[in-house]
Design a protein around this nucleic acid. Structure first.
Ligand SMILES: [Zn+2]
Ligand SMILES: [Zn+2]
Ligand SMILES: [Zn+2]
Ligand SMILES: [Zn+2]
Lengths: 133, 133
DNA sequence: TTACATAGTGTTATATTATAACAATTCTAA
DNA sequence: TTAGAATTGTTATAATATAACACTATGTAA
């Protein structure tokens, strides 16, 4: 029997960092996070990156690869970050997680001609948001 | 009348760096490129990054965002990097540019509910390639 | 062919993003 | 209670990317 650890509860640092990201209207960068949690006793980059790595792994946050920044997951359907899609405004930096079941199904069932079976995808759309148009 | 500059010809540094990327069977990172072109007189990071920026802008190469690495474009249809898709092996790091007209059409015509009109997308699929399966 | 604009180069320094390594502590399941 | 797993705290360093400035090369138009 493999040992199981408690799920669904975040450690102290993970909770602090998740709360910050979850409250933020925009993606946060690791060193912005670090700066903002120093008052709570998190002093060094590894503490931030470890929490971020874990939060990404359990699907509570996602990394926006084109911005090296992190957003809280707003989509219970993205099943632990296996299928993520975002819309990104090139002017105001706004990022919005897309939850579109049809798109997700379409991409999840996409099979590469060259025989590769996909486990996961990440899609980033770029444009101008309503406000910036 | 707006002045036009010559197109299609790469500068010396751009050509050196493009050739290196184009010959490479795998994505190359900026500092790997730097190391490999020092014998040709390119000595400093800005020289590499400027060439990379330009090559990306004109669609000769693409950046694999999840790897901070660059590949030559193998797809004349991706119309200056407006619509890019890649398959990435999580084991051997192999990256392959996907050229699938149907997928490209589907995503290019995708419209976000929230009123955003997309100009560009980048899609990265992850899995195990044939060899690593 | 001269003059101007644009693009590209070379260089030094520095900013930003991310990880290695190690000791200590806390949590969890049996 | 105890051993394994996860988390923490810390210092140092690696890896990725840009700022700033002086200069050179190239294409265009008059
Ligand atoms: Zn999500
Ligand atoms: Zn906007
Ligand atoms: Zn391409
Ligand atoms: Zn592989």
């Amino acid at each position: 029997m493999t040992r199981m650890h408690k799920e669904n509860t975040l450690s102290k640092n993970q909770q602090i960092i998740f709360d910050l990201i979850d409250k933020s209207p925009e993606p946060l960068k690791a060193y912005t996070i670090l700066f903002n949690v120093q008052k709570k006793g998190i002093n060094a980059p590894p503490q931030v990156y470890r929490a971020l790595d874990k939060l990404v792994a359990i699907g509570k946050i996602h990394k926006i690869e084109s911005k090296n920044a992190f957003v809280a997951c707003k989509n219970s359907d993205c099943e632990i970050s296996k299928a993520t899609a975002f819309s990104i405004c090139e002017s105001c930096e706004m990022v919005d997680e897309i939850s579109d079941a049809k798109l997700s199904r379409y991409l999840s069932s996409f099979n590469h001609k060259k025989g590769m079976k996909f486990k996961r995808f990440n899609l980033e759309f770029f444009g101008l948001c309503k406000k910036c148009k």
